[in-house]
């Protein structure tokens, strides 16, 4: 469950000019590996041969401008869309995800931007919604309450005072926390977070980022979609930059600058990294 050093891998990417960069798998098996994923909607090709790897214990930030294909990529991973072509490996084994249920069976959970919490239920009710623990056909409140508390405590969450509180009474950061805890409650292995800090203040953002780091430190793979470069550089191990449906580069967050990532997002290449002829890329 310790943090994994994978940063050397992306050094490779700095010399690799001509095609989207993937890091060297080395001896470790990636949790998630996508190879050459294509997706078209009618005449529009939204994803062009996208490669992506996520290792257990790391946070991969997925960045890109509006329309770069972040959402489509995530929806292809979670089974809401089916990719036209491309290979998909989970824990090293080829997988076919055709529905959201396939994804959650594999251990892939998504925390959507709008959180999908029921304000009128308490924290326990929300965390177990649709998967309530039953005993003799009735709700086993005690077991659920304990498991909810253990999960939150295991994530070092200290901001939710009681799991019996209605969600309507929680702050934005606390709600995000509950939504994330709900995602990890189910032995999930890969958690995808869609803009988790978009609507949060400074203190709450840092709470949530700490939680994101904690997930990775516990051995989960985390994909973080974000527009906020501060968040990305603070919490991510690697940054995957999408540019017009192509994976421009996957760079090491520790050695990359904010300007470099912004350049990759806006023009697809930056100082020798990225797409070879980004200016000629057709949508």
């Amino acid at each position: 469950m310790n943090q994994i050093k994978i940063h050397e891998a992306s050094e490779v990417s700095r010399t690799n000019m001509s095609e989207p960069v993937i890091d060297n798998p080395g001896t470790r098996t990636p949790l998630l590996e996508l190879r050459g994923v294509n997706k078209t909607f009618g005449a529009v090709q939204v994803l062009h041969g996208v490669d992506l790897t996520v290792y257990p214990g790391e946070v991969v930030a997925l960045v890109g401008d509006n329309g770069a294909g972040k959402t489509t990529l995530v929806k292809s991973i979670t089974g809401i869309y089916t990719a036209d072509s491309g290979e998909f490996f989970f824990n090293g084994a080829p997988s076919h995800i055709k529905s959201p249920k396939d994804a959650s069976d594999l251990g892939i959970e998504v925390v959507y931007q709008d959180l999908a919490l029921c304000d009128n239920l308490d924290v326990v009710g929300n965390m177990f919604l649709g998967r309530e623990k039953l005993r003799n056909g009735l709700l086993d409140e005690v077991a659920m309450e304990r498991l909810a508390r253990e999960t939150l405590a295991g994530l070092n969450v200290r901001t939710v005072k009681t799991v019996r509180q209605q969600v309507s009474g929680l702050s934005g950061g606390q709600r995000q926390t509950v939504a994330i805890a709900k995602a990890v409650l189910w032995n999930s292995k890969l958690v995808i977070l869609d803009e988790p800090t978009a609507a949060l203040g400074v203190a709450q953002t840092s709470q949530v980022l700490r939680l994101v780091r904690e997930l990775a430190d516990q051995g989960l793979g985390v994909v973080l979609i974000s527009h906020n470069m501060n968040d990305v550089l603070e919490v991510a191990d690697r940054v995957a930059c999408l540019y017009l449906g192509r994976m421009a580069a996957i760079v090491d967050a520790k050695t990359s600058s904010r300007e470099q990532i912004v350049e990759l997002i806006t023009s697809g290449r930056s100082a020798g990294i990225g797409l070879a002829h980004a200016e000629h890329v057709q949508i």
Binding site: D114, L115, A116, L117, N120, G125, L129, G130, L139
Partner: peptide, 18 residues
């Protein structure tokens, strides 16, 4: 529980598999 959930947030209930 599901009845309250659907009444509280239909979309959340649907995504939870209800």
């Amino acid at each position: 529980r599901h009845l309250y959930a659907v009444g509280g947030n239909t979309e959340a209930a649907r995504r939870a598999g209800i």
